[in-house]
Computed example of a mutant assay.
Amino acid sequence: MIKHLVSAAVALLPVALSAPIHAKDRTGYRAIATGDFARAERTLVAERRIFPNRPELMINLAAVYLRTGRAAEANALYSKVLTQPATLMELPSGRAVTSHQVASTALASIGSTVAVASR
């Protein structure tokens, strides 16, 4: 299985890192970490045109959507991660988690902060 580093450094929501630090930031991780959400979104949207089902791209784009006030779009991407095969990811602490665990945790977080109105 492909291993990816996952960090919760920005706003305590998971962001995946799969490229070496010296490589081009194809996962948007560095842009997200520095708060450049517009650049991260451009990178992630372009990469998803090539690799539409890579969970680290969906997870990071969902994180950008959350940080820019688009919870519904984030929810849709995290939900899509759950429809794909689980990918093993490694936390900076060395703990291994799956893309499904990351997406489920994020969805639970969204659910606890998004108000649903009904009449």
Rank of each mutant, 00 (worst) to 15 (best):
G111L: 06
R54D: 08
K80R: 15
P92S: 12
A117F: 15
N75M: 13
A71P: 14
R48V: 02
A46G: 04
I110Y: 07
T113Q: 14
E73Y: 04
G69V: 10
A117W: 14
S109A: 12
A76H: 10
R48E: 04
T87N: 01
V102Y: 01
A63I: 07
P85T: 10
K80N: 06
K80W: 04
A86R: 12
R48K: 08
L82C: 03
V81N: 02
Q84R: 12
V81L: 03
E90N: 08
Q101C: 00
Q84H: 08
P55L: 05
L82K: 04
L77A: 03
E56W: 08
E56N: 07
S99R: 05
R95M: 13
S112V: 11
I50L: 13
T105A: 14
S109H: 12
A108M: 10
S93M: 09
A96P: 00
P52M: 03
M58G: 04
R54C: 00
V97Y: 08
T87K: 12
F51E: 09
V81S: 02
R70D: 13
A115G: 11
A72R: 15
A76Q: 13
S112M: 11
R48T: 02
S112G: 00
S104T: 15
F51Y: 13
R67S: 09
S93P: 06
E47G: 03
I50R: 13
M89D: 01
A106N: 05
T68H: 09
L77Y: 07
S79F: 01
P92D: 15
P85M: 10
P52C: 03
M89N: 09
A76C: 03
R95E: 15
Y65V: 01
P55F: 02
V116G: 01
L82N: 01
N75L: 06
L91F: 09
V116C: 00
L82G: 01
E47A: 12
G94M: 12
S93C: 09
P85Q: 11
G111S: 05
S93Q: 08
R49M: 11
P52Q: 02
A63N: 07
Y65K: 11
A74K: 05
Y65R: 13
T87W: 04
R49K: 14
M89T: 09
R67Y: 08
R67P: 01
S79C: 01
N60E: 03
E47K: 07
T105F: 14
G94L: 14
Q84N: 08
S79Q: 15
K80F: 07
T98I: 10
L88G: 00
N60W: 06
T113V: 15
A108C: 00
M58Q: 11
A63Y: 10
A86T: 08
L91V: 02
A72G: 09
A62L: 07
V114C: 00
E47F: 05
L88M: 13
Q84V: 15
A106T: 10
S104E: 14
